[in-house]
Design a protein around this nucleic acid. Structure first.
Lengths: 137, 137
DNA sequence: CTGTATCCACGGCGATACTG
DNA sequence: CAGTATCGCCGTGGATACAG
C-alpha cells in the first residue's frame, strides 16, 4: 500500500488526492475519504444486513466496477471497518462482513442519510427557485 | 447552472460525475455532493461561528482556490444552505452566513466529525497493523 | 474587494483482459 | 469465483489573468 510502490501506472491504486499541508483540514480529509466515498458508503450499507460474498456485493451495488469494489474493500479492511474471510473450498468462497467499528460508522453515516432524506424535497425546491431567479438574468 | 451551458470547457463547473442510472445510489450521491465535499464541509464549518466575508473565508480555509470557493458558495446558496448578502458600499462587502437548513447540516456533519475524532487513533493502528502484515508478503 | 473566464495537468476510475 | 494488471478518457480543480 501507500501510493505507487509498484511497477505500472495504477497497479496499487494511489491514495486519494491528499495534497495539502496537514492543516486543520486533515481531519476532514479523513472523514471524506471514508464517509464521502460513494462506494465505501454503499459497501458499508450493503453489509448492514450481514456478510456478503464478493460477487454478491458486486451485484448489490449497481454501477461499481470490479476494480473499485476490490479497491474499496481493501481500504475498508485496512481501516478495520470490514473483515475478509476466505473459505478453503472449491470454488473459492470469500465473505466480507462489518466489524464493530464498521457498525459504528454505519450508524454515523445513517445520521447523514436521514438528514438528506428529511431535507431532500426542501433542497430540491431551493434549487428550483434558485435556478429560476438565476435564469431571469 | 446545470452542466455546461456555456462556451469554454469548464466555464460553469460541470456537476460532479453522476454517471449512473439513478438507482438506489442516488440518495447517496446527494449526500456525498454535500457532505462529502471537502470544501463544502469546510465552508459550512467556517460559517459556524457567524457570517464571514468572501476574503475571510478564503483565508480561514487554507488551500482553497478562488475558483473552488466561489463555486462551492454558489452550490451552497443554490441548496439554500448559505445566504449571500451584498452591502452597497465601496469597496464592496459581501457576507455569507448559514441558513437554518445549513445549521442542521452542520449538526449532522458534526456527528461524523466526532466519529472520526473518536476512532481516529484506532484506525491509525488498524492501518499500521494491516500495512505491516501486508508488507510481510 | 468580489468575483469570472480560460487553460491544462493530474489522477480517479471505468472497461477490458488475464490468472489462480 | 475472486481477484489483479493495464490502458486511456475526461472530470476535477489549481494557477493565472482579468473585470466590475
Amino acid at each position: 500500500m501507500e501510493p505507487e510502490p509498484s511497477t505500472g501506472r495504477t497497479a496499487a491504486l494511489p491514495g486519494p488526492c491528499s495534497r495539502w499541508p496537514a492543516e486543520q483540514g486533515e481531519t476532514i480529509r479523513q472523514i471524506i475519504d471514508r464517509a464521502g466515498n460513494k462506494w465505501a458508503v454503499l459497501v458499508v450499507g450493503s453489509l448492514h444486513a450481514g456478510p456478503l460474498r464478493y460477487t454478491d456485493l458486486l451485484r448489490s451495488i449497481p454501477g461499481v466496477s470490479q476494480r473499485m469494489l476490490t479497491y474499496t474493500l481493501r481500504q475498508l479492511r485496512r481501516d478495520g471497518l470490514v473483515t475478509r474471510t476466505a473459505y478453503p473450498e472449491v470454488p473459492p468462497r470469500v465473505e466480507y462482513a462489518l466489524t464493530d467499528l464498521g457498525e459504528t460508522l454505519l450508524i454515523a453515516i445513517t445520521t447523514l442519510i436521514d438528514w438528506a432524506g428529511t431535507h431532500h424535497d426542501e433542497i430540491q425546491e431551493n434549487r428550483a427557485r434558485f435556478d429560476e431567479t438565476e435564469a431571469a438574468v
